[in-house]
Nucleic acid binder design. Structure first.
Lengths: 247, 247
DNA sequence: ACCGTCTACTGATGCATGTTAGCTTCAGGC
DNA sequence: GCCTGAAGCTAACATGCATCAGTAGACGGT
């Protein structure tokens, strides 16, 4: 996988909506870039942190451990500020874990505090980023309340595909991920065996082929219809589109 | 039901953490108070809004309509800023609906903009409120991934009870709500028939008696254990408690 | 008093999903 | 080449939940 230039990727989808000056400021937030591998815990639930993480390449899970089970409550794609809320909450209610090989940037909270004080537009962009996370959480709640396992898996891939589109990284016929069927199960709240059945069903319906986490499809629209995926909650184009005047 | 004094309730659980000056400012955000009845739609998904809502008494649902079904993705209790994110997102991805008789305050966005510019501590309190909403969303995701229907219902009541505790309104042996079993079903992502069986199971296990939305129990601890409820995600007391230095 | 509607409740049946057990495939280490 | 462990896959049976059908009580309107 190619790693995009760090600078080209920061601020993710808000990149087009900020001034050159603000963008340079956001780039200056990153003190350092690092690499991580599958399962690396970037931030443990309850740990105090003095820095936040910006994902540059790869995927990151938000996980909650309960008993001997792991639950995935969110997924991040390149360009996302992954634990920005750790800046305000100090200790997170969940852990931040690499879902495969990743590259990420470190933003010390000291510099974020500075942004809040002196850069109102940057401060609002950061707030917007956390509000978008919350909107995605709400959609996951609805997805879990409404859809069966095959549709949940399809919905997750459709969402990720759209999020890649919004940062200009989507592929026309596939979506590459390092997710195992166990990961999919932990996202959907089903057993790994049932996640396997669900993947088989998508294959049987000829909607998508999922191999080692990579999804291939010849018809994203059919998949989206099957998953009842409506992208508006991501605040891209369309009726709910994000109003940049606010920044 | 008695309505607490509006002024005593604003800022909810952050009340103790803000200065008198900031509190008076927050009170001044409320231009008007209103009453609402069951099913009143305070804000429709996708509608543009120039004001936000502070719940003073009663309950409010966040709902998403899909096909002919309704999904409840969040519940609010008195003291909550219900649609603060509408200030930044302009159009909400969900609707705001009264879950019974309510009293609420209206805060014009004009005044909120002023707060963001000139009141950094108030701005941070508002951000914290939306981050707390996101933490609750994440717990709902985990709850839906992990628990069966009776436990989900128990978990929701335990959460609401704790949230009432955090604003000093909890009752020792009961929790009064106007929720129908249909409401509970829409929160849990199960059918109304199954919600009825789940309520029956809690009764059979002698953990709780739910009648017309009101829950009665002699042993909250037993109920919390059954629901695997851990309150830390609400950032009250305990290891994840909210660090007020940040404000 | 009557009616219609909403909510709570019950039983029967089928599908969705969990659990257990065992098997296959594949990549990496030796 | 072989071994090993992790991931993917399959079958059989048990449970959770949806669906359909129906009853009963509470409530408001007339």
């Amino acid at each position: 996988m190619e790693f995009p230039n760090t600078g080209d990727f920061l601020a993710g989808r808000l990149r087009d909506k900020l001034s050159q000056d603000d963008l340079e400021f956001i780039e200056s937030l990153v003190a350092e870039t690092r690499q991580g591998e599958t399962g690396d815990v970037l931030l443990e639930r309850g740990a105090v942190t003095e820095q936040s993480t910006i994902l540059i390449s790869g995927y990151i899970f938000r996980t909650i451990e309960s008993g001997d089970r792991r639950f995935i409550v969110g997924v991040h794609v390149p360009g996302d500020f992954v634990d920005l809320h750790g800046f305000a909450l100090k200790r997170l209610d969940h852990s931040i874990v690499a879902a495969g090989p990743i590259t990420y940037g470190i933003a010390p909270h000291e510099r974020l505090r500075d942004a809040l004080e002196h850069r109102p537009r940057v401060a609002r962009a950061l707030w917007f980023a956390t509000l978008l996370d919350a909107a995605i959480h709400r959609k996951w709640i609805q997805m879990l309340e409404q859809l069966d396992a095959p549709r949940r898996i399809a919905h997750i891939y459709c969402e990720l595909h759209r999020r890649f589109e919004l940062v200009g990284q989507a592929n026309a016929r596939s979506l590459r991920t390092p997710f195992t069927q166990i990961d999919l199960a932990d996202m959907c709240g089903v057993s790994a065996i049932h996640a396997n059945r669900a993947v088989g069903k998508l294959r049987e319906l000829e909607l998508a082929e999922i191999r080692r986490g990579d999804l291939y499809t010849s018809d994203w629209d059919a998949l989206r219809t099957y998953a009842q995926f409506q992208a508006d909650y991501l605040y891209g184009d369309g009726p709910l589109r994000f109003d940049q005047d606010w920044l």
